[in-house]
């Protein structure tokens, strides 16, 4: 294989791995945009989505790709409950309180999941396991293509929802100016709950796609992807979906480069080195005038 081929291959895998990050980061962006809250426990929703998918699949044996709807719906519900009973009471008491609260949520979700589903690594076999599709010089598993398609469809759906529906427009209005939105009669508390639920649903979609691609999962799988998704949205710009996609892809490349050149242990550290350097240069985030 020539160098260009290897490079293209790495880009492709970066894209595939980036899908999960992009879904997480978009969800975080949505929640942050509307409510300005920081939920470090966002990765736990990814994990719950993964377990719901696996459980339904083990029980019914239906095509795991179809379960994505169910896991998204379930997480809208769970997200709404968390928003209503955990975050709403402390809304406006400061970012630190939200971060501390999410630490509590991490304890509860990770260990609750370990109590319900056990703590061992599990995996699911996709019905399309073993089928590959030629893409240029590569032969790519069908599952990866499906995952990219699903991510694209979900993101397009979200875009249309935000642009075309009344609720979507209300969400955008709330994120641009909360007080103004209140003044024109938008029920911002309802918008909060919907945004939080949607953000969680995006994480759940990520969890489902994680599972169907045959990746192993356990109750602790969500924490690091969530923190990295935060790093990506800080880098890529709060509220910017293209920024999150490019940021996620660049992060993936940097990580793989560091793992090979400096040693595997650098894979997590390099994200934070980049983040710190970026914040030293621009303390508000790379594209970050917006948002806060």
């Amino acid at each position: 294989m020539d160098t260009l081929g290897i490079f293209l291959q790495i880009i492709f895998w970066g894209l595939y791995a980036g899908c999960i990050y992009i879904l997480l980061a978009t969800g975080l962006n949505l929640i942050f945009g509307v409510m300005k809250i920081v939920n470090f426990a966002h990765g736990e929703f990814l994990m719950i989505g993964a377990y719901i998918t696996a459980t339904v699949f083990f029980l019914t044996g239906i095509n795991p790709y179809l379960i994505i709807l169910l896991s998204m719906l379930a997480l809208i519900g769970i997200g709404a409950v968390i928003e209503r009973f955990c975050f709403r009471p402390i809304l406006g008491t400061g970012k630190l309180n939200e971060i501390f609260l999410s630490i509590g949520l991490i304890y509860i979700f990770q260990n609750g999941a370990a109590m319900i589903w056990g703590d061992s690594w599990q995996s699911v076999k996709s019905p399309y396991d073993g089928i590959t599709v030629p893409v240029g010089s590569l032969s790519v598993p069908l599952d990866y293509i499906l995952i990219m398609l699903f991510t694209a469809v979900i993101l397009c759906g979200l875009y249309l929802f935000l642009k075309k529906t009344t609720i979507g427009m209300q969400m955008r209005a709330t994120s641009q100016n909360r007080k103004g939105a209140m003044l024109v009669g938008i029920n911002v508390e309802r918008i909060d709950i919907i945004s939080f639920g949607l953000g969680c649903a995006l994480a759940a979609a990520g969890g489902t796609l994680w599972v169907v691609s045959g990746q192993v999962f356990n109750p602790y799988m969500g924490s690091i992807p969530a923190v990295k998704a935060f790093a990506i949205i800080i880098l890529g710009g709060l509220g910017s979906i293209p920024g999150a996609i490019i940021g996620g892809l660049l992060m993936g490349l940097a990580e793989n480069g560091a793992a090979v050149l400096l040693g595997g242990i650098w894979k997590d550290a390099i994200s934070f080195v980049i983040l710190i350097v970026a914040l030293v240069v621009r303390p508000t985030g790379l594209f970050g005038e917006k948002g806060e």
Partner: peptide
């Protein structure tokens, strides 16, 4: 900002 600081310190421990 306070939550950027939280991220940086979290990452710092890993580094």
């Amino acid at each position: 900002k306070e939550w950027f600081l939280a991220m940086v310190t979290f990452g710092f421990a890993i580094i």
